[in-house]
Nucleic acid binder design. Structure first.
Lengths: 226, 226
DNA sequence: CTATGGTGTAATCACTGATTACATGCGAGA
DNA sequence: TCTCGCATGTAATCAGTGATTACACCATAG
């Protein structure tokens, strides 16, 4: 931004060094993907939008995949933040509610940022395994889910014989499926009148009420599950 | 195959006209995607594998997208067949079992044919809206699901106040999420010892037992269904 | 004021999807 | 049977892509 130009003429400074090309490239990448989709993305256009030569990005990112991985890392930070925010809004003493909040925070962010979500969830566009940031945050969320379910189980809100990891997998699959259906365009065929966000939210509530917190009447009886 | 060659020399016939280029191209496309992934697919290599010039495919498919759409249509036929087969294997009088069978048939096929599934579910690689075949079969499956749940509800196996379309959406999201997690590579991070197919199957059973068919533990029926 | 090294440029490579003009030969109509 | 139309495949070509390289630029340390 504020660079002192030594160019003789008083015209546009246009410094040789961009100043902060890395972030500018990431921002330009996100913009272009949102405008034209991931498939149409080219590094050349990213460079052009950042006002830089076609080869410049490769000075900072070894490959197109590396650039997209950087975008994914930034996106994952925001996703984690959205999840954390949603969790912090519910009662700390209610692990089941916190568990549901994870889903809501996840879906809310995914629907609001379909582009970023698409990049995160794809394992072909980015080099997922090479990014410790992505791996760590992903694992952290899963571990939190298991912990919350464990607490819920101790509170008697879950059957004692249910496999928590299995339940976490199911919940992840469900939320992931909802998000991907929305992103992949499987919702227009559904109900044009109802926006995906509402349908998704209702579906999640239905899932939670049936799956995570069984109705009290079931627990009232002497537990003889199957 | 059996083409009469009029070539003077007795060498390789190599007829000018391929005979059945369309299907050969589709087959070659599938092969290449399975070998190197969808991102790496190029029409040139498809043509090369079919033993034809780089421009030949464009005589039959307007674009790369059109070629992939043709692959998707063939794939959807097989998916529908897999679902129908799974449904036909269960008791006709048990709509809940048939409903679950749809999920099993869907997941079985998706895990066995990740490439095809990836193409079908993507709405950017193919021109989904332009293919009446894809639209019709997709809609048919959804309608069948609603019908089965309606029957199950009449049998008292479902709460009478539950929104069936909402439940179908949830089930679709769940199955879709499981399939995509497997295809997108979200399972290696889980349990390397357990193959995805088993984890997926268990998850689906868990989902069905909790969600679709509330356990009727109070009913002591002499018959043991499966 | 120089030289060192990080940053961006320009030229280039192999490859892609796509289009066009042209070559080929199968099969229908005489 | 012969011929010719036309579907089918070829060759040449285009613009655009990811990626690499040699080189130009410039901020700053000494």
């Amino acid at each position: 931004m504020a660079k002192k130009s030594v160019t003789s003429a008083g015209e546009k400074p246009k410094p040789y060094h961009h100043g902060n090309l890395v972030e500018a490239l990431i921002a330009a990448t996100v913009e272009l993907i949102e405008e034209r989709g991931v498939e149409q993305l080219s590094v050349r256009e990213v460079a052009k939008r950042a006002g830089v030569s076609p080869g410049a990005p490769f000075r900072h990112f070894r490959s197109k995949t590396a650039l997209l991985t950087a975008v994914a890392e930034q996106a994952m930070d925001r996703l984690t933040a959205s999840v954390a925010r949603a969790v912090s809004d519910v009662d700390n003493a209610d692990p089941a509610a916190a568990f549901e909040a994870i889903g809501h925070g996840y879906l809310e962010w995914a629907l609001a940022n379909p582009t970023h979500f698409q990049i995160i969830s794809s394992r072909t566009l980015i080099d997922f395994e090479a990014s410790s940031s992505l791996l760590d945050q992903n694992r952290a969320i899963r571990e939190t889910m298991v912990e919350l379910l464990t607490q819920a189980q101790h509170q008697g809100r879950l059957a004692s014989d249910v496999d928590l990891e299995q339940l976490v997998l199911a919940a992840r699959a469900f939320v992931y499926g909802l998000a991907r259906m929305a992103i992949d365009g499987h919702f227009p065929e559904w109900h044009p009148s109802e926006p995906p966000a509402i349908a998704v939210r209702r579906a999640l509530c239905l899932f939670m009420s049936q799956m995570i917190v069984p109705p009290k009447r079931d627990l009232a009886e002497p537990e003889k599950p199957l």
